[in-house]
């Protein structure tokens, strides 16, 4: 038996919305520690990895490891029926072919029950090694979203270059070219909200090219976190991570574009 409950069901809806445009379906792997999911886009260029810790749930019970094969578009249809402040419970039997989703309003005056049919999904899993990245940038997620959206109107590839002082996003296209630089915030600024700052940890300067189409896709997760962390190395996939307070994180990996 697998059972979990979230006070803010809305968070789960936002999570599914952050995944469903990149991957159509995937396996929720549930074990005693939490829920994880990994999925690649159809062109095998981007990967999304979701890790939810049991501590983030108000109730969590997993007697045996369970794999829930889920079509995200179908799940999203059911989650649409959930109220913005509803509590969400998910239940599945060990060998069941469906999972139940229960939405309950704050005052318990409305309860909705949905059964989602599960799928057998045979998915390739990739081993993502723990790596020391050459540059790690933390910035406001809304700022990253705006940059990706605005630059994609000019070109389809962004060059991200990082130095100790700043991170620069450059783009070029038929109409011309441009760049936007964000400077590292002053470290002495104790009054400012940390989530508003740009923090750069640098081992050595890095420059890599990425397809904006995918980055724009990743920014669907902006609603989950005030900040985003970008980790870059040389000839390595970019990691774009959104952390949710105590619930866990959603990470996106994007293979670079290499100059021919």
């Amino acid at each position: 038996m697998f059972e979990c409950a979230l006070i803010q069901g809305e968070l789960f809806r936002k999570l599914i919305a952050s995944v469903q445009d990149l991957v159509q379906d995937g396996n929720f792997m549930c074990d005693a520690n939490g829920i994880s999911l990994q999925g690649m886009d159809s062109s095998h260029v981007a990967l999304v990895a979701l890790a939810l810790k049991k501590e983030g749930f108000v109730e969590y019970r997993c007697d045996r490891d369970v794999t829930l094969g889920i079509n995200f578009a179908n799940l999203a249809k059911m989650l649409k029926c959930m109220g913005a402040k509803d509590r969400l419970s998910i239940r599945a039997q060990d060998e069941g072919d469906s999972a139940s989703f229960v939405f309950e309003s704050e005052d318990s005056s409305r309860v909705s029950n949905f059964e989602l049919k599960l799928m057998q999904i045979d998915q390739e899993q990739l081993g993502v090694p723990e790596t020391q990245y050459k540059a790690v940038i933390r910035m406001p997620s809304s700022e990253f979203q705006r940059i990706c959206k605005d630059l994609s109107a000019i070109g389809d590839t962004v060059s991200i270059s990082v130095t100790k002082e700043a991170v620069k996003f450059s783009v070029g296209g038929d109409i011309g070219s441009g760049d936007m630089s964000l400077r590292q915030s002053e470290s002495g600024d104790v009054d400012g909200d940390d989530s508003e700052k740009v923090m750069i940890e640098l081992e050595e300067p890095v420059q890599q090219n990425f397809a904006l189409r995918y980055l724009n896709n990743f920014t669907k997760a902006t609603a989950l976190s005030k900040t985003v962390t970008l980790s870059l190395g040389t000839d390595m996939p970019l990691v774009t991570e959104y952390k949710m307070d105590n619930l866990g994180s959603i990470r996106y990996y994007l293979a670079p574009k290499i100059d021919e």
Binding site: V45, A46, L47, Q125, L126, G127, A255, I258, D259
Partner: peptide, 14 residues
Amino acid sequence: NSMQMELSTFFSKV
């Protein structure tokens, strides 16, 4: 001109 790499170049299948 730049070429889009695939993730399998960097990560191995498990």
